[in-house]
Design a protein around this nucleic acid. Sequence first.
DNA 1: AATTTATTTTAGGCATAACTAAATTATATA
DNA 2: TATATAATTTAGTTATGCCTAAAATAAATT
Lengths: 223, 223
Amino acid sequence: MLTQAAEDYLKSIYKLQEKGGKVSTGILAEFLDVKPASATGMIKKLKSMNLVSHQRYQGVTLTDAGKAVALEIIRHHRLLELYLNKALGVPWDGVHDEAEKLEHVISEEVEARMDEILGYPTADPHGSPIPDKNGVVPEIQSIPMTDLQNGQSCVVAEVSDNDAALLRHLGSFNLYPGTAFKVIEVAPFDGPFTIDIAGQQAVIGREVAKNIFVNNVEPIDTV
Amino acid sequence: MLTQAAEDYLKSIYKLQEKGGKVSTGILAEFLDVKPASATGMIKKLKSMNLVSHQRYQGVTLTDAGKAVALEIIRHHRLLELYLNKALGVPWDGVHDEAEKLEHVISEEVEARMDEILGYPTADPHGSPIPDKNGVVPEIQSIPMTDLQNGQSCVVAEVSDNDAALLRHLGSFNLYPGTAFKVIEVAPFDGPFTIDIAGQQAVIGREVAKNIFVNNVEPIDTV
DNA sequence: AATTTATTTTAGGCATAACTAAATTATATA
DNA sequence: TATATAATTTAGTTATGCCTAAAATAAATT
């Protein structure tokens, strides 16, 4: 059995690996809010269990076994988030923290039952893909909202899930995955976005927009 | 925040206290499968937190605060057992172990949602009473099955929950809480019970019968 | 009162996981 | 290429938490 800390390291390595191949000790340490020396220690431990490969000064990579564990934890997390939200009515800004604790503890049996009850879903309440039980991650096509230009319409695909206040803010505009909106105006000099959601106007700051990813983007209005 | 071990000690002290007032160090240690010295250590720790009262060589008692914690954990456990069984379809012989892990981790919010969804239940799948959120434990009237005599009919009130194999065995006879049965014969010299459940006969060994508690006991057939 | 039993204290072990400080290695710059 | 800077690793420390064996002490029993 793995410790909770070990599982958290594996999950983090997976996430960081997603965006840029090899994961340096420093980046990993920063992500987990520990000192680099601590990360080195855990990396050595995980390496001795053949969950990561690592050569000094070259960064870590998950082995197949390590990736399987990481995906299992992520699957737990995302299924739990969806289950908590859909079946238990926990608001979407609260599911992350709860899932963070439960993910290390639930059995495969309970996971399978939740999966079935939810109808084998492919995305959690924030739009993040749920790996299937074989570790296959559904592809989600999306671009950052900050890439949008005036007049473009689109649908929310995914939002960052780790900031409850941000989620409450987005919720107040109904900016959930699946919600369509259109860009009315992008203020110059990296300013905020004015958008139209179901006839309602809303102003979304750029820092907030960075946490929103969209798809089904329609081409710019050309008069 | 309390550690999981501390919560387990409090829960154990509560259960042992139920059956006989003060709880000795030795009994507690045996119950938790640790050495007496370990129990003494934890007792000191719990005492420093005002969760138990204790004077050397005199056994432990929960304080009001300690009792509140114990009942909260027990409430978590039993609500989880029922939720896992009813809402997620986990078989009754599997819910105990799963709840044992989850009970230390779920939030009050999730607990409240489960409680509501289950309709504010008062007993878990094994018939054990679920304390309410104020720590009030519903009374369950019952006597040991081993007190029954020939010809008496009754209803299963509660069974021990910690032995999965026993639960599967009872399940094979439909001996769930709420099930009615009648004693056909009690074999002499502390022998097994032959009972009738909905027209089916079953033989229940005495060791098994010790784990079954019944109520609604009808008087003996007097011809 | 002597002996047995139970409890407590003492002293120490082990596992986990973090940290600091110093040494090492890699990378960037002059 | 030499040197400065940055990143990583090593080594040793600290803290938590729970456990144990052995010795000391108290309580119960004969």
